[in-house]
Design a protein around this nucleic acid. Structure first.
Lengths: 141, 141
DNA sequence: GTGGGTGCAAAGACTTTGCAAGACG
DNA sequence: CGTCTTGCAAAGTCTTTGCACCCAC
């Protein structure tokens, strides 16, 4: 956890990003959660914790950190962008009811055949996604 | 192709959906494309082909067909919902520049270990997703 | 006929942008 | 100190909804 924050300071500096309290707060919050929050959800949590943070800043921070490779978007089925501080490939579970995205641990790298990707397409990363109904939603009735 | 349309007629009827020209047109268009269009993209194509179709109807049709299991959303990273007439699990390539989604043929079903999905999570389907830059975008400069 | 479907326009949800004031390095 | 960042408000996308009219069954 603290290692991640220190690595963050280094990498942000190298990317030419100033280390503002807002950026640190957004990143810390994202690292501490594993539910892949949207900008709005991060903002809702942060506005109670630190003085003076705006939704706009959360959006802009996520965009900057994404460009610097410090956070990544996760694949969703809904029209809302969700983020993850784990940037290495891993697997996700997407809830068809609420749209939340969870980490899961499926080993897939060893066994996928990428030889059918057409020419001209450059694969940078990949992930395995499961769809279904999450615990919260299935207990909701 | 024509089989798909006939199957569509049956399944739509069974789901209690009336077979309007608009719904047929949306479904046919989606079947004929493999680039997972958004509602807007479908509408742009259809408004030249059939008289009297509105963007609202395309949205509503996609929602009805999705509920009936005749079309499915595909996972994306951008804030726009994309659809697919292939409802069985398969793999996708998501372009990080333009957001387009392509079908790819990666065999993954035989080899993924789902035993780590936590209790309480019901998996209905799954897919393998690759991210990168698509042919169109990489030739754009 | 009648209940569901359609089209238009307006509203809603999510995200981006312009601009002036402020903070990091 | 200069440049990058922030906050506010306004604008921009994408999607949904209300309502009156229309059509498939």
């Amino acid at each position: 956890m603290n290692e991640k924050i220190n690595a963050f300071r280094d990498r942000a500096r190298k990317a030419g990003l100033k280390l503002t309290p807002q950026r640190l707060a957004v990143y810390k919050e994202l690292v501490s959660r594993n539910d892949h929050p949207s900008a709005e959800e991060l903002y809702e949590d942060l506005k109670g914790k630190i003085e003076g943070i705006s939704l706009t800043t959360v959006y802009r921070t996520l965009a900057s950190l994404e460009k610097a490779g410090l956070v990544a978007r996760v694949p969703t089925l809904k029209d809302k962008v969700r983020y993850d501080a784990r940037v290495e490939p891993h697997s996700h579970f997407v809830c068809l009811k609420c749209g939340r995205v969870y980490d899961v641990d499926c080993d897939f790298k060893s066994s996928v055949n990428l030889s059918n990707i057409p020419e001209g397409f450059e694969v940078k990363s990949c992930s395995f996604v499961c769809y279904g109904v999450c615990k919260k939603c299935s207990s909701l009735r």
